Computed example of a mutant assay.
Amino acid sequence: MTVYELCERDVVNVTTGQNLGKVDDISFEPETASITGVILYGRLKLFGLLGREEDTAIPWGDIEKIGTDVLLVRTAVSAPPRSRKKLFGVK
């Protein structure tokens, strides 16, 4: 598996069923070249003009299973709730 293939996968929390997002980067220890975790970038604010939310780091030990299209994790980290605004205020 390559880093590119890993970055195509969604990350789903097993305990809550919440989709945390896609893997954007990995963190590793340079001395041993071992992966220490995956990083999910925060969501963009106003198309990136106002920066982005905080990144989410998930330790490698929290990853339960790497599937063909999803990473299953068991972690206390949760994605910030998305606020969806309805067009013209109609719900």
Results as ranks from 00 to 15, higher is better:
8 E>Q: 14
21 G>H: 01
51 G>V: 06
55 D>T: 12
40 L>S: 05
24 D>P: 01
54 E>K: 15
32 T>R: 12
54 E>L: 07
83 S>Y: 08
48 G>P: 07
54 E>N: 14
8 E>H: 09
70 V>Y: 10
83 S>I: 14
71 L>C: 14
23 V>Y: 09
77 V>M: 06
24 D>C: 15
79 A>V: 10
44 L>K: 11
59 P>C: 02
42 G>A: 01
13 N>G: 00
84 R>C: 01
85 K>I: 10
88 F>T: 09
80 P>H: 13
15 T>F: 08
7 C>K: 02
76 A>S: 13
9 R>T: 02
11 V>I: 06
51 G>Y: 01
60 W>A: 15
12 V>C: 01
48 G>W: 06
46 L>A: 08
42 G>I: 05
23 V>P: 11
1 M>W: 09
88 F>G: 00
14 V>L: 13
59 P>D: 03
71 L>G: 07
36 T>F: 03
47 F>T: 08
60 W>K: 11
59 P>A: 05
82 R>V: 00
42 G>P: 04
48 G>K: 05
63 I>P: 10
10 D>M: 14
51 G>C: 06
76 A>R: 11
86 K>Y: 13
7 C>E: 11
5 E>C: 02
58 I>E: 09
61 G>H: 12
67 G>N: 12
34 S>R: 14
71 L>F: 15
73 V>I: 02
89 G>T: 01
70 V>H: 10
87 L>E: 04
8 E>I: 08
58 I>G: 07
7 C>A: 07
13 N>V: 03
21 G>F: 00
42 G>Q: 02
89 G>A: 04
86 K>G: 02
17 G>P: 06
49 L>A: 12
60 W>G: 02
15 T>V: 12
37 G>H: 08
79 A>E: 03
29 E>I: 15
51 G>F: 00
3 V>R: 11
